[in-house]
Design a protein around this nucleic acid. Sequence first.
DNA 1: CGTAAGGTTGATCGTGTTCAACCACCGTGG
DNA 2: CCACGGTGGTTGAACACGATCAACCTTACG
Lengths: 233, 233
Amino acid sequence: MPHPKFIAHLQAIEGLSDDERRQIAALPSTLRQVSDGEILLRQGEDASRCVFVVSGFLYQARIVGDRSQILAFHVPGNMPCLHTLLVSPMDADLVGLGPSIVGYVAHSPLKQLLDGSIHLTRAFWRETLIDAAISRQWIARLGAQAALPKVAHLICELAARLAVVGLVKNGRFQMPMTQRHVADACGLSIVHVNRTIQELRGRRLIAWEGSEIELLQLDELRALADFTPDYLT
Amino acid sequence: MPHPKFIAHLQAIEGLSDDERRQIAALPSTLRQVSDGEILLRQGEDASRCVFVVSGFLYQARIVGDRSQILAFHVPGNMPCLHTLLVSPMDADLVGLGPSIVGYVAHSPLKQLLDGSIHLTRAFWRETLIDAAISRQWIARLGAQAALPKVAHLICELAARLAVVGLVKNGRFQMPMTQRHVADACGLSIVHVNRTIQELRGRRLIAWEGSEIELLQLDELRALADFTPDYLT
DNA sequence: CGTAAGGTTGATCGTGTTCAACCACCGTGG
DNA sequence: CCACGGTGGTTGAACACGATCAACCTTACG
């Protein structure tokens, strides 16, 4: 039983039958520990297997000019490089964020499974469409929002995605990322991110100590961020 | 024979057999003129058919706060809202850019066709993955580039995408968008876009008169924009 | 003609960057 | 045990890129 969180996530997106769940669970997979900052897949590399997140976080980043831009975060239940199944070269580095556990599923058995089931293909296709919707939301954030809502929006998105897999308790969740990661994700300088977070703290919207974030006033935070969670499913 | 450009585009992405091409061409479709600024689909609307671009341009935009953010442009051969096949509500408005011609294919016959062919499903899935790769590139642009490379990159991307469908001749192509569209796509003010374009003109990288752009020094423009076209296929 | 839309220009303003320094924390090795 | 070096966080000051405001010009079109 290798990846219950991934199956649950898929289930939440597109209903699966018992049999389909069994078929996915039967896929051969291997688990592996990932340390903070470790690069799982490099930009340009041809992947021969898919990754799924069991615990911890991953992110995808690309060097553009002299800075690093984060393109996406991945929480438990996500399958970051599912698209390599059809378009093999990675267009960004896949990196561990904090100590994490990931699983690998080789492309060939997964392809075989999907070849045999239109409905499962649909489910996995849909998974990549959710990722695309998140990317589109990032475009809106990066292009049109000021620093404060940008950071607030990122926090709202991560909280909502973690909530789907049951990792938010009483408005609190583990957040191993540093202010540098937030800066690279939002296209801001690290200094300004620091001041922005202080502003969020000063307004009593969030508490962020160590690696734990607490959402103090979710509604106000979402209003500030112009956040609605519907695009995540 | 309703959508030769779309089939050619799909063909370029994933090889199709003669029979598959015939099947796609046999899909019932209707053509329609679209005027500049006309909204084909609204954010939140449930689409019951897919759109493909025959001639002209479309774009997707979303209002965020007090500004409009363009999320994507669509050139002839693209199928903008293919994802509505699996995730029906539109997450942005789909708008005509300049007078254009689009075609409609109802969801149900398309679903039926894909249900019968894993390979065609793969091909259409892959089409959406290319869109996702473009979105990811936009994230990198918006998050990490300065104004001049941002605008240069957008021009490079459109030129490369138009070249795939044979709409670039001697480095010249039709570009019906105004500076406002560029501003909304790049997250810049219209005034600054104007100055940026003048800078590009001043450096003899592009000529942009009326609705025609000419690329004067493609290599230099791409170097400035940090552009590589590989993500488009 | 009159009006609207797109484009251009100049001046001023402000958000976020850059540079620099300092602090707190923590694991490591002398 | 403490000195140390590294990482992440915090603060202040000066700067710059791009936004904003306002005006004017050209062109297209009714």
